[in-house]
Design a protein around this nucleic acid. Structure first.
Lengths: 209, 209
DNA sequence: TTTTTTATCCGTCTAAAGTCTGAAATTTTA
DNA sequence: TAAAATTTCAGACTTTAGACGGATAAAAAA
């Protein structure tokens, strides 16, 4: 029996989910919560296998609850069940420790499947969300220059135009020492050894144009 | 009366030209030659205003004759009359001092006109030849890097790849001082101030790829 | 609110880059 | 053959780049 806790601030939603899950033999609903805080306490007491967690709630968000739960019960599989799939929701949730990410457009059967897969350590991610996650991963291994700060990028483009530190200093109205600091940081981030290679980098990656 | 000498190693060509020119009031044929050497001697004696010169002849080329004539009679207008219009013929001829350049496909009237214009210090250049001359002039003001020597171009491409002087020195098996000399010359020829700008130049002009 | 990131700046120091002058050997061109 | 361009290298010198350590204030994120 898979012990499940359902968290959602809308009672009608909880009831719908619970009603269906109770028809599934392998699943046992051991508790329900209507807020993040409530959820944390409930999970601490019940130590469930799975938590179905809404993200947007009135008292305490699902992300905070997820973070908190992972702290004392890291093996608990938290399945996010929400209607949002924008960056601002998805990444923090996954970062917080969510195991799967479902949208409320998912069928009841999808939820059951996700619970079963969670017990087999299989993640489930909605297609719409998956693309976000992928681009998020790409964000991790993004091109060197994309991890530059705005100012550093400005300086880099100047280098790409063949400007000297002094010229950059004059153009951006900052001290030459500051320019040097930026240049050093840029070289480190790009993984090159001098400004000439940085300039080559700019052109090879078509950063100008 | 415009005093003209006709130079061509084919008697039939000379006769044809002379026959027509004799019908022109303002023109007087004062002599004819069948080789470059002969032409030089004839011109030295007769001091004509105009020389109609073939380029390809058996004894002594028209280019050499032209050069020689310009040495002792620089005001003499030498009109090249030939069937060739390739680079190897055109440039040496003009460089030697030819005043106009006609093709043998020109009409008799074109020749007369060229002679008259020559007396008014107007050059005549066949359209087909003109394009060569233009690109020749462009050759004078060709892209900076095209006036680099082979070695300098090698070094420049290394710079375009972000290499340091030491690395270039190692790669080309030459001293670092030599590299510096090349770099300085390159910077001067390209009109840039440092190697970074040189690298930018390389990429802007797509010298690599 | 506390912490982290960002943008700014200083001084010192070393290595690299670049200039200038001069020069010798080789190759190319006239 | 003579003249010009190319390639090579040297010494002395100046300037620029870049590394390293440290520091501060503002902005953004946790």
């Amino acid at each position: 029996m898979i012990r499940v806790v359902v968290v959602d601030d809308h009672k009608i939603v909880r009831q719908g989910i619970i009603a269906y899950l109770n028809t599934v033999q392998s699943i046992e609903i051991v508790g329900e919560a209507s807020s993040g805080h409530e959820a944390v306490e409930l999970v601490r007491d019940l130590q469930p296998d799975v938590v179905l967690m809404d993200l947007v709630m009135e008292n305490g968000t699902g992300v905070d609850a997820t973070k908190e739960i992972m702290r004392f019960l890291p093996d608990c599989k938290i399945i996010i069940l929400t209607s949002y799939y924008d960056d601002e929701k998805v990444f923090p949730a996954i970062e917080a420790g969510a195991f799967s990410y479902l949208l409320k457009t998912a069928s009841a059967n999808d939820i059951v499947e996700a619970i079963h897969k969670a017990m087999n350590n299989e993640n489930v991610i909605e297609p719409k969300v998956a693309s976000k996650v992928i681009s998020g991963i790409q964000g991790q291994s993004k091109k060197p220059h994309q991890q530059l700060t705005k100012r550093e990028l400005e300086v880099l483009l100047c280098i790409g135009n063949g400007m000297t530190n002094q010229e950059i200093s004059d153009k951006l109205y900052i001290g030459i020492k500051t320019v040097k600091t930026h240049v050093s940081n840029i070289l480190a981030k790009l993984g090159v050894h001098d400004r000439t290679q940085a300039a080559v980098y700019v052109h090879r990656n078509r950063l100008l144009e």
